[in-house]
Structure formats: structure tokens, C-alpha cells
Nucleic acid binder design. Structure first.
Lengths: 109, 109
DNA sequence: CCTCTTCCTCTAGTTTATCTAGGGGGGACG
DNA sequence: CGTCCCCCCTAGATAAACTAGAGGAAGAGG
């Protein structure tokens, strides 16, 4: 594990997809939103964020469009595609299944 | 992510530590136990298992001893050390914190 | 006008966990 | 004796996330 783990490996795609499912947003905003909603428990490093966005776009789960941010900055706005929504469903189910399984193990007396 | 994800990345150490905390066990048994308790949701590949055990031993969180299995096979029995128990506490707390954070994100309407 | 800060994007290189895909030895049992 | 199962182990590939940078452009403050 890296010195400072701020995210459960493998859940970043899920977190991004879920965040974009509620509202299209630029990349920096996604990171802010995740951090804020998780009450600072999750930190999305930029070096993780942008490669992840690129990955999701390449798989056509999100779509990008240049625009202007609320602060009048040049920003890339991402939104979920239809297949992205399906992927989100799948990943949420996976998360549920696997995290429940971990909890099962941890709760053994 | 690898083609078939059978485990949440980063949780294997935690699962092993927890399993050994309840009962010392040989490596193969640990994998069986995890699979069984998780009702087949978690699959521990041998190529993940043994490197993980070696890693934990190197960090002195577990201790190994050769013995004979219930089937009269030569087997390496692992048990938790004192620092291993502390590590387990830490990792359980981390898991709780991070998985709750993920759930927070996923539950947003 | 100039500088500094904040916003926002991006990349190269490293680390590390896990998987794939093997090999091997030694009991037990037909 | 052959075969299955138990149990250990490893090399190499894959891929996610981190570290540690760069840089451009808007707005604020002097």
C-alpha cells in the first residue's frame, strides 16, 4: 500500500461515476465533491483523478465537453453516458457484494 | 482492474489477519476459511495468498511454524503476533472509516 | 501594470497488490 | 503403482493509485 492511502483501491471509478450520475461536473469539481460528501475521509489526488477520468472516457462511460466553470475558468465538463449508467449499476452491485463479504469476515466473534 | 476481481484491493491483509486472530491456521486453510465464511463471495488465489503471508510475516504481524495438517500434510501454521493484533485493530478502523465514506457517497439521492 | 493566489488540467515515473500460470513434493487410496 | 488431493511456492504481467512535478488563465491587491 502507498504511504498514505486515501481511497480504497478499485473504488475510484465507482465514486466518480456515482458523483457524475447526480450532476455533470468538471474534474476538479468531482474531486472536491467526493471529498466534501465523504466528510474529508476520501481524498482524491490529482494524479489519480485525471488518469481515472481519461480511463472512464476511453471506455465511453463518461463524455467530456469543454466549457467555463462557475469561476470563469476553462474546464472540462463530464457527464455519464448510457453505458456509464449501466456500469455504475454493475459497480454498485459489486461493491455491495464484496464489502458485505468483508464485513461478514470482520464480524466473526 | 484485473479481468476477474475476487477481492477488494487492499483488504487481503485485513482478511488474513482477522482470520488468524480467531485461530492459528495454515495458509491454505486461511484461504478456504475466507472463501467459506464469505459464502464464496471472496476467492483468495494462491498467487495472492502466499505473497501476502510472506509480506505479513516480514512485517512481523504473523509468525510461522511448520507442522502437520489435519490431513497429515506438511503445513506452515501461522499465528498473530502482538503487533499483528495492533495492526488488525488499525486496519479494521481504516476499513470502517473508508467503507462508510464510500457508502455515504453511494447513498446520495 | 505587475505579482500573487486560486482554479483547473495534465503527465512521467514509481510503487505495490493482485492475478495468471505455472512447478513440486508428499499422503492417501483404489 | 498411478492418481488425486493437499499444501507450498515463484516469476512475470497487469493495472490502480501515488508522488512530484509543469503550466495556463482569471481575479485580486498593491
Amino acid at each position: 500500500m502507498a504511504p498514505s492511502m486515501e481511497i480504497l483501491q478499485g473504488t475510484l471509478d465507482l465514486l466518480i461515476l456515482k458523483t457524475l450520475a447526480l450532476e455533470p461536473m468538471h474534474g476538479w469539481g468531482v474531486a472536491q465533491r467526493i471529498q466534501q460528501v465523504s466528510r474529508e475521509a476520501l481524498q482524491v489526488q490529482q494524479g489519480s483523478l485525471y488518469p481515472a477520468l481519461y480511463r472512464l472516457e476511453r471506455k465511453k462511460w463518461i463524455r467530456a465537453e469543454w466549457g467555463a466553470s462557475e469561476n470563469n475558468r476553462r474546464a472540462k465538463f463530464y457527464s455519464l453516458t448510457k453505458t456509464g449508467r449501466q456500469q455504475l449499476e454493475r459497480e454498485m452491485a459489486d461493491w455491495e457484494r464484496l464489502s458485505s463479504a468483508v464485513t461478514l469476515i470482520l464480524q466473526r466473534a
